[in-house]
Nucleic acid binder design. Structure first.
Lengths: 197, 197
DNA sequence: GTCTATACGCAGATAGAC
DNA sequence: GTCTATCTGCGTATAGAC
């Protein structure tokens, strides 16, 4: 039992993410976060040194986590096509599982300290670099055929991340539909070489 | 001379956008914005009723403006392919021209009042609906061949808007390169029907 | 680990002269 | 239209008991 009982701290992060997502980081006070957990404002400082530290924890949960959980799929055996398809699926499913946290990270990153912001940015850059590498690998095998791997990587990351901005669970569109549609869009259309003449 | 001399007010909006983009809306005080214009903090209240009104003006400049300037391209004569290509180009060029304003709008939208946020959101939804309509038009003529026009529209808008997040003017990649690359990616790959068999 | 009580600084906003 | 001076409230953070 070394890494057990992630109760209170994670509970705070989760509650904070929901509150930040609904009312915006600035508008939310420590008292509001505390209330959402069921304790008093001052008690939060037993778990976090500052409000910004809570926001930082939220941001890490959606930048560090994908690097550790999703990126390994790119090292699994299989063709670039298969690995890219697996990445698209896992990425979207992660975005869905942690949608509130993603929205907060996306919208409130500006409120991080420069130091924390640099860490978060580095995680994101790393992820993008790995995506670009698979695109390049697929170009080498001839499975993919885009003019510029870097540009394609930007486009792919932006398409995927955009998901959390517009997806709503209550609509006539299931996550699985988006996954299938986006695998087709990204792997079978965007990346696939144009049939020559 | 009815709509002339947009001097001071626009000057404030432009200066505020730069400051917000660099330090974040929350961290920036009215005194900072004023200093960037060369006046005192209190003087700002002659032009705007509140700090949030300035942010609102920034957001409108990148949501209302494209609707008025870029969307008419979709009503011009030409095939869906041509009109979509024109939209991609104009959209990216607008994003580039107003990149700081876009970054602010993208990151600080959470700080708008619910009323103002609703207006901004409506502008964005309208834009997206028009994009989806061209995709649908192209499907009708057979020029485009995607499984779901709505999903494709989301993907396209996200690819385009993502641009302002990663593009830097000083790198070895010119705006024109991105325009050409993205027209190819979006129109000739993502939307084009797969050659059958 | 959570509480009550409180310090305190800062940023948004106002009043009124020029 | 811009200034100086000032108010005011709110929200983070601390002190210290339980």
């Amino acid at each position: 039992m070394t890494a057990v009982s992630r109760t209170r701290r994670d509970e705070i992060v989760a509650a904070a993410a929901r509150t930040f997502a609904r009312d915006g980081y600035t508008a939310v006070g420590m008292r509001d976060v505390a209330e959402a957990v069921g304790i008093r404002g001052a008690s939060l400082y037993h778990h976090f040194a500052s409000k910004e530290e809570i926001l930082y924890a939220v941001c890490l949960s959606v930048t560090q986590e994908p690097n550790e959980q999703t990126l390994p799929l790119l090292d699994a055996p299989g063709t670039p096509t298969q690995r890219m398809a697996a990445l698209v699926r896992a990425h979207l499913e992660h975005l869905h599982r942690r949608q509130v946290e993603h929205l907060v990270a996306l919208h409130e990153m500006a409120s991080l300290t420069p130091e924390h912001r640099a860490v978060v940015d580095e995680h994101r850059r790393f992820y993008q670099r790995r995506v670009r590498d698979v695109v390049a690998a697929g170009m080498a095998t001839g499975e993919f055929g885009v003019p510029d791997a870097r540009l394609a990587a930007f486009a792919i990351c932006d398409v995927l991340n955009g998901f959390s901005n517009w997806f709503h669970d209550d609509r006539d569109l299931a996550v699985e539909d988006v996954v299938v549609g986006y695998v087709d869009l990204v792997v079978d259309r965007l990346l696939r070489p144009r049939t020559v003449t």
